[in-house]
Computed example of a mutant assay.
Amino acid sequence: MNQQTAEPALPVRNFSAQLSPTPRGARLARQLGADRLRSWGLPVDPARQIIAELTANAATHGRVQGRDFRLTLYVVADTLRIEVTDTRGERLPRPQPASPDAESGRGLLLVEALADRWGVTGGRFPRKTVWAELRLTPTEPSASRTPAPGTER
């Protein structure tokens, strides 16, 4: 019996790279992510800024000598999901207001402002994944900034 398989309406899009937890690794993650988004015909910003912040955090706060972090991008329906997995599962990120003269500390506030949703998911010890989602189609501003159910922010 011949059976036809249904072709997906949209192409499957996913990308993953393992990188060193260094400033160079974070910079490379941002470049690779932007290149991948361009190749998929998707807008680069604000995803590039989110990738930059999450990978900089992985290189700074999630760094463990000899252990890499992973950047994963994928598109499901009309949503781009950005995930950064590191091996400091005991250090959960929390956005906190930075003092006006601080040189750092605003990254998660930026992610919170740019992403439609974001959160943290635990993994096999010692991993954690910080993720952010962006809708690829226009939405109502008041409905777009809702936290994911069950995630701490």
Rank of each mutant, 00 (worst) to 15 (best):
L80H: 04
S104E: 14
S104D: 12
T139S: 08
T139E: 10
T129A: 04
T5V: 04
A56D: 13
P100H: 06
D78G: 04
T85V: 08
Y74M: 03
T146V: 05
P46L: 06
A132R: 13
R36F: 01
L110H: 08
P97R: 09
T139R: 12
A47H: 03
R48I: 00
R153Q: 07
I82C: 03
T5K: 10
Q4T: 09
N14V: 13
A29H: 02
T137M: 09
S144T: 07
T72Q: 14
N14K: 10
W40H: 03
I51W: 01
F15P: 05
M1V: 05
G41T: 13
R94T: 06
G66A: 08
T79H: 04
I51T: 01
L32C: 05
R27Y: 07
R67Y: 14
W118S: 02
R27Q: 08
G89I: 11
D68K: 15
V12R: 15
P149D: 07
T55W: 08
E133N: 13
D68F: 10
P138Q: 14
P100D: 02
R67I: 04
P43M: 09
E133M: 13
A17R: 13
A59L: 10
A113G: 05
T5E: 08
A56I: 01
P23T: 11
G66R: 15
R124C: 00
G107W: 00
S39W: 15
G62E: 08
G123D: 15
R127N: 10
T79I: 07
A102R: 11
R117V: 03
V130G: 01
E152C: 03
Y74L: 02
T85I: 04
A29Y: 02
A59F: 12
L32A: 06
N57W: 00
G105I: 14
V44D: 11
Q31K: 12
T146K: 14
R94L: 10
E140W: 12
L32Q: 10
D35W: 13
L37M: 06
R88M: 06
T85R: 15
G33H: 01
Q4R: 14
L28V: 11
A17L: 14
D45K: 14
I51D: 00
K128I: 10
R91V: 12
G33Q: 08
L114I: 06
L19R: 11
T87L: 04
M1P: 09
E133D: 13
R106P: 00
R153L: 08
S142C: 04
L136R: 12
D45S: 08
L42S: 08
P8D: 10
A9Q: 09
R135N: 04
T55R: 07
R117N: 06
L110I: 11
A26M: 07
A29G: 08
T22G: 09
A6E: 14
L37K: 03
L110T: 14
V84A: 02
A59K: 10
T5F: 13
R30C: 02
G107H: 02
R135I: 03
P95G: 05
V111L: 06
A143Q: 15
P126T: 05
E152T: 13
Q49A: 11
P100R: 07
W131R: 00
L110P: 00
R117I: 07
E152H: 14
A59P: 01
D35I: 01
R30F: 00
E112G: 02
Q18K: 15
R48F: 01
L28F: 09
P11C: 13
F69H: 00
V111Y: 02
R81N: 09
R13N: 12
T55K: 12
